[in-house]
Amino acid sequence: MVAALFTGSLVAILVTVGIVLSLVFETFRFLQIVPLTEFLFNPQWSPQTAIRTDQVGASGVFGAIPLITGTLLISAIALAVAAPIGLFSAIYLAEYANSKTRAVVKPTLELLAGIPTVVYGFFAVLIIAPLLRDGGAWAGLSVSSESALAAGLVMGIMTIPFVSSTADDALIAVPLSLKEGALALGSTRSEAIRQIIIPAALPGITGGLLLAASRAIGETMIVVMAAGLAANLTLNPLEAVTTVTVQIVTLLTGDQEFDSAKTLAAFALGLLLFIVTLILNVIAQHIVKKYREQYD
């Protein structure tokens, strides 16, 4: 009986082993075709293999730099939206709102995280991208119809609850005595929050931001629909950029032979993504855990 139960938890291990094995194995095959240095340092990404093998550029160029910068650019925009909105929402909910408001607003914000990401992607295409294009035209800027800004903004909206929930938990965990100590000295509430409560809650808040970042980096549907396919190496948010996840999807959808460098590249990108998000998660969990112990 207990052995049967144990197999259940063994599956969890098997999944991880499966992920690591499949990613590592295919990446290994990829690196036999494309050298690691090209993958990590070449600033050009053009996986379009030619039809005839004797054509120029027959093998494609697999430099992940434009994908990484694109991913980071969009994630940065997302965090620039989610961090202030999420943090200020959490502050208001934890420190100002009465319990009734809190009971209504908190789940409402969490709805944002429950909406499927494909819906956000459609929202970006339907509303945000045209809005930005028209707004850009009005301001005399040319905004690409698939801009990093549109994808980043919408991804930011999606990530708000990841920031606000963890920040709220962290703020609430700060002992009341610290807040009262500051208020008793004649602090205004905002002074107590800014100078005492937030510094005390900072580890928890940082953990939340890291989780949000990891979420943004691994997000797929929003960028597939709202960001582009063009691997531009740019930091201009008005231009189209592509991301690691977008390229994984493009390389693997449609019918392809499985052994080409193109399809294998998707697994190398997947491994990169897995490692980066894993590191972010481990750090975030470590920080949050340490922080909880501090006030327990």
Partner: peptide, 24 residues
């Protein structure tokens, strides 16, 4: 180890699960 594993699995990007499905 299993516990750490489960916590991390919960945060793995969903597309990676897709890659797992495709490969395995």
């Amino acid at each position: 180890l299993i516990e750490v594993n489960i916590n991390n699995l919960a945060a793995v990007p969903s597309i990676v699960f897709g890659l797992l499905g495709l490969a395995i």
